[in-house]
Structures are given as C-alpha cells and as structure tokens.
Design a protein around this nucleic acid. Structure first.
Length: 112
DNA sequence: CATCTGACCTAAT
DNA sequence: GATTAGGCCAGAT
C-alpha cells in the first residue's frame, strides 16, 4: 500500500466490509496493517471525510461505542437493523456478524 | 513541556 | 457481569 496514510488504509479496509457484517476497531486496524492501533481507527472514523460504512464498526465485545441513547447510538442501531444486524442489550452478537476473512485473502485482493 | 482525553483492547482480578 | 491496569498515540489544553 504505497503512499497511504494510516487513516486512508483504515478507510480502504472498511469499505470492503460487506453489509450485514461488523468489525471491531482493533480488527480494522489489524487488517489495515496497523496492529494495536484501535484508537487510531476510532479517530479516523470520527475525522474522515470519506464515505465509509462507519456503522459497521463496533467494540471488540460487540457493544456500540457511543453512549446508549445518544443520537449517534440510535443512528448506528437503525443503520445496522436496516442491514439485518440484530442488536440485543446494546450489543451485536459477534460470533454471528463479525467479519473476519483471512488477512492474506484480503491482501491478495488488493488492487495493486 | 506536562497532562488529559478519547467512536479502543487485552488480561487479570 | 464489572473494574483496573497497562498498552496504544494523535490532538487538545
């Protein structure tokens, strides 16, 4: 991935996450080649101007990162429900919806 | 320059 | 479950 900023790498990977699936901030960072940089993933989603499926990113335990009841929380929940992703007690069932294809498969499909 | 603050994570209590 | 501690690190104060 030549000349890509960390944030761009993260956005790139996120755009590949299909509807109906979710990934955690940490996984997103890992897949973007930035292990241990979960917080960076969060910052990027907050600051990027790119059109990315941000609502498909949740915490590692499946909980939505926003305070429950907040505007953003409700928005994310609606968007996920629209994609048939069920949320119970504020959490996504990771075992069912987590997107975790093999990292080498992803790298092999990179368009470079 | 020191400290605080996060759309975070893991491991250990 | 809930909490704590340590790791992470770019911005803001």
């Amino acid at each position: 991935m030549p000349n890509y900023t960390p944030c761009e790498q993260i956005c790139y990977v996120l755009k590949r996450v299909p509807a109906g699936c979710v990934v955690s901030y940490g996984q997103l960072a890992d897949l973007a080649g930035l292990p241990g940089r979960a917080r960076l993933a969060g910052r990027c989603l907050k600051e990027t101007s790119q059109n990315v499926p941000w609502h498909r990113v949740v915490r590692a335990d499946g909980k939505l990162a926003f305070p429950s009841g907040s505007e953003a929380y409700e928005d994310q929940e609606r968007r996920l429900n629209r994609e048939e992703v069920v949320i119970t007690r504020g959490r996504v069932h990771m075992q069912t919806y987590n997107w975790k294809p093999d990292i080498y498969t992803i790298l092999a499909e990179l368009p470079f």
